[in-house]
Design a binder for these strands. Structure first.
Length: 471
RNA sequence: GUCCCCAUCGUCUAGUCUGGUCCAGGACACCGGCCUUUCACGCCGGCGACAGGGGUUCGAAUCCCCUUGGGGACGCCA
């Protein structure tokens, strides 16, 4: 049995988007699953729109996703000789011909066809003229006039196309550069690609490409057209639905493993399983379980999955990943060991790394800024007594062990007659500035005696200030 | 307009090929409860779907047809 060889052929006209990432993933996963090969090819025949920045952005995104290629990257712009050779061959064999119809004429032709209720296509003016190569002639592929072309698609089943629907499409522009439908085939043939998994939007291109295989007498690859990813309004996912660039998700604090888990699971399934590690995916991925219908991208579910992956990630790893996000929050060069302790308290309650970093800020701050609501609700007169008592108790403790801390709080409870809940909330606000946070004892153990005393004392002073200014 | 594809909870989906075990299962979201020093986590429970209509069949979410709805493609873009 020959190796499965898949490929991902992005065109460098922008960043890698969600849909592209998903087809890359399917191809990569299938290659890994079958112990085959995965090829990366950059489709840059459109010189006007291709940029180096886009190429770099695509590499960057692929790297983040953890998708590695076994061959390439190949650049179509460097393979022009190969294409030319095949074009000449097709023309010589009578499978293609030169055409001098102007684009203006074609436009008129298309408009007329539309009006008559037909499909806009080339009328074949130059098809049998036997024109020789001239400066501004294009090369057209000579499509069969009748019959059908049947696509055996592994995800969609058999799709039958009437060859009459196809027209003599251009394979080489008047400037001499070859076009997409042609180069794809030549590349796939010369790179030995035998499995093509791509977006649904390519279905209509497939019969054209199959015809070229036939003209060249080369066996067809296996095709699998996967349904597209839609936005919440069920139209093709685009910028107006929110972030579509892969790296934007990285910057929002998603874990690559969570992201690929979500993307693959959108349109593919393995029974009821929702959570997959990268290894799971490689082990379980198969073409048979790809769904036939398009799916809506749902960030809520991605978020939930990300939270799960965060919980499953070792603390040390998370800490390293969190550091850049902490820096974005203005925390410079935090010490790893300290970050690890912080992460331990935040990991179970964070949906993204960005959120985790935001929630971690108070651990590092010199002064605590109280959230308005928190201040109003908890730092009031009633809190003065327990906070003052707590400062007194804490001052007597040398080591801030969990046991000692509990004793201190218990003492405050007894002396004030308040329940722990009534004491903990003001303390939480004093320590974090917010009403929601990890457990009080955990926080105290991490920020340490000096800062705790300082923060609680400052809260006491703050309450006194407030009551004075009220008078 | 023409061609192609698709159709199960709000969303992702299992089940469809090989009709009965499905008065349809899971997950996210939402709602309620438990746990609890807050928020989360976790646990328990609830809400919620076979687009419609015809067939075929003893029996259909599953097979066939039509309708409707949605998506995609119609470039000297890829």
């Amino acid at each position: 049995m020959v190796d499965i060889i898949t490929r991902f052929p992005p065109s460098p006209t922008g960043y890698l988007h969600v849909g592209g990432a998903r087809t890359a993933l399917f191809n990569w996963l299938y290659a890994r699953h079958t112990n085959g090969k995965f090829v990366l090819r950059i489709e840059d025949t459109d010189t006007a729109r291709s940029t180096q920045a886009s190429v770099d952005a695509i590499f960057e995104a692929l790297e983040w996703l953890g998708i590695e290629w076994d061959a390439g990257p190949y650049f179509q712009s460097q393979r022009l000789d190969i294409y030319q050779e095949y074009i000449d061959r097709l023309v010589a064999a009578g499978h293609a011909y030169y055409c001098t119809c102007s684009s203006e004429k074609l436009e008129v032709m298309r408009a007329a066809a539309m009006e008559k209720g037909g499909k806009p296509k080339y009328d074949g003016t130059c098809r049998d003229r036997g024109l020789a190569k001239t400066d501004n002639a294009v090369v057209r592929f000579k499509a069969p006039l009748g019959g059908t072309t049947v696509l055996k698609d592994v995800v969609k089943g058999n799709i039958v196309f009437q060859n009459d629907e196809l027209d003599d499409f251009i394979i080489c522009r008047s400037d001499g550069t070859p076009t997409y439908n042609f180069v794809v085939v030549i590349d796939d043939i010369t790179m030995n690609i035998n499995t093509i998994i791509r977006g649904d939007d390519h279905v209509m291109n497939t019969p054209k490409q199959m015809l070229i295989y036939k003209a060249l007498d080369v066996p067809l690859p296996t095709y699998g057209h996967v349904p597209m990813v839609l936005g919440s309004d069920r139209t093709r996912l685009s910028k107006r639905h929110g972030a579509t660039s892969v790296t934007a998700y990285r910057d929002m604090g998603f874990l690559p493993d969570a992201f690929i888990n979500y993307l693959v699971r959108l349109g593919w399934s393995f029974g009821d399983q929702e959570y997959f590690t990268r290894e799971d995916l490689i082990e379980k991925f198969s073409l048979e379980n790809i769904g036939r219908s398009a799916g809506v991208f749902d960030q809520e579910k991605l978020l939930a999955l990300n939270a799960e992956h965060i919980k499953a990630t070792p603390i040390k790893t998370l800490a390293q990943l969190l550091i850049p996000f902490l820096e974005q929050e203005g925390i410079q060069a935090p010490e790893s060991a300290f970050v690890e302790k912080v992460v331990e308290t935040l990991a179970p309650r964070s949906k993204t790394l960005k959120e985790m970093a935001r929630d971690a800020v108070f651990y590092f701050a010199d002064t605590i800024a109280y959230e308005e609501k928190a201040d109003k609700k908890f730092l009031k007169q009633k809190a003065l007594e327990p906070l003052t008592l707590l400062v007194a108790e804490l001052e007597q403790i040398e080591a801030f062990t969990e046991e000692n801390l509990e004793d201190a709080f218990r003492a405050v409870m007894e002396k004030s007659g308040l329940k722990l809940g009534k004491i903990a909330q003001p303390v939480r606000v004093a320590l974090t500035g917010r009403t929601a946070s990890p457990g009080i004892f955990e926080i105290i153990a991490i920020i340490g005696r000096d800062k705790v005393l300082d923060r609680v004392s400052k809260a006491v002073a703050h309450i006194k200030d407030k009551s004075e200014s009220m008078e």
